[in-house]
């Protein structure tokens, strides 16, 4: 069995205490929520924090607040998100994304906050210590070269969170709390296009909650590409949210992509739809626009050119589902289960 390195363990009961510990321990300390990302990484010696600060005992992080929108505590598990009626009814894109993370067991442990702060992934990096030694490591950890793009000064590991693109399309923001105070940032701004330094969050900050704006008039959808019906991280995530007038004219639209860059990001595809109806041509045009922004690299499962080639098709799935087309059969074929 692969074993964890030694570490100290703290389990504060309040956000304030947790923030104090982080401030005192410095970057040697790391937060742990469900541990479903961090612990496997520690076994492979990607991260070897001196101290783990657990969020499990902090009840304040597990709240759901319904207002004009919804506020979700960062330590809610993904299955708690999936079971939440408000999410299911009003934020279908988030619901579909959360329901497709990993497996049911991992969703029982994994949290929303952990999902948003998930380490970037690359199949030169997500390997155990001995394997990485055999390639003399890489830029992201212990090495000098990025093996995916040897001329690159930057790590191009893939952002692999499912909920982030869905939440970005829904216009979510997050709250970050530290001993110095708190700040709210648009979720899209939490991310940087850098496989190593992929978050704008400071090491002493805790992501405490996710705020979703009111959902009136919006419909959303998330389509995930992965090899199998469970376990696999996305190798493409397409999230769309569209607000239409009564006559079907698009008033506002956002299309976000995941897993094709070191960050999840908003594309220009949504803007193209505004003022139009969701006709086949408009959908195809938006698909092409979104696809042009996808920059998959050869560091995940499945052929990279193929992953790029199917982006537009996946955008079509999402928009047609929002339009109200019958997509269940396609969904079952792609996701291997109904959503």
């Amino acid at each position: 069995m692969m074993r964890l390195p030694w570490f100290g363990f703290r389990s504060p009961r309040s956000i304030v205490d947790a923030a104090k510990i982080l401030a005192a321990e410095g970057p040697q300390a790391m937060l742990i929520a469900g541990g479903t990302d961090l612990l496997p990484n520690m076994k492979r010696r990607h991260q070897t924090p001196a101290t783990l600060v657990s969020l499990r005992q902090i009840e304040a992080l597990k709240k759901v607040a319904n207002g004009s929108g919804v506020t979700l505590g960062a330590a809610l598990t993904l299955n708690e998100i999936v079971a939440n009626a408000a999410v299911r009814e009003r934020y279908a894109g988030l619901w579909q994304a959360a329901a497709q993370v990993a497996t049911v067991h991992l969703r029982n442990m994994g949290t929303l906050g952990g999902n948003l702060c998930l380490d970037t992934r690359c199949n030169y990096y997500n390997q155990n210590y001995e394997w990485r030694k055999a390639i003399d490591f890489c830029l992201k950890k212990d090495g000098e070269i990025c093996w995916v793009a040897t001329a690159s000064k930057r790590c191009v590991a893939a952002s692999s969170t499912d909920t982030a693109p869905a939440l970005i399309a829904l216009g979510a923001s997050v709250r970050l709390v530290s001993v110095q105070g708190e700040r709210d940032v648009a979720l899209a701004d939490l991310y940087k296009n850098d496989g190593i330094d992929y978050l704008t969050r400071r090491a002493d900050e805790i992501l405490t909650e996710v705020k979703l704006p009111a959902a009136e008039g919006w419909r959303s959808s998330y389509w995930k590409l992965r090899r199998r019906g469970a376990f696999d991280f996305p190798v493409l995530g397409v999230a769309a949210a569209v607000r239409t007038a009564r006559d079907g004219t698009v008033e506002d639209a956002r299309i976000a992509l995941g897993a094709v860059s070191s960050r999840p990001f908003l594309t220009k595809g949504g803007e193209l739809l505004i003022g139009n109806k969701l006709g086949d041509d408009a959908i195809a045009e938006a698909g092409a626009k979104v696809a042009s922004a996808a920059k998959p690299m050869d560091n995940t499962d499945l052929d990279l050119y193929w992953r790029k080639a199917v982006v537009a098709e996946f955008v079509g799935y999402a928009l047609r589902e929002i339009r109200g087309d019958e997509m269940r059969e396609t969904r079952v074929r792609i996701a291997r289960h109904a959503l």
């Binding site: 199949n123 997500n126 390639i135 003399d136 199998r228 019906g229 469970a230 696999d232 289960h337």
Partner: peptide, 25 residues
């Protein structure tokens, strides 16, 4: 790339990345 390294490694020695069917598939 041979200019930079002599490495020849198993691409995906893990149950997650070596793909085999799940019950859903």
């Amino acid at each position: 790339p041979p200019k930079l390294s002599n490495a020849l490694v198993h691409k995906i020695p893990s149950l997650l990345e070596y793909k085999s069917l799940t019950s859903l598939d």
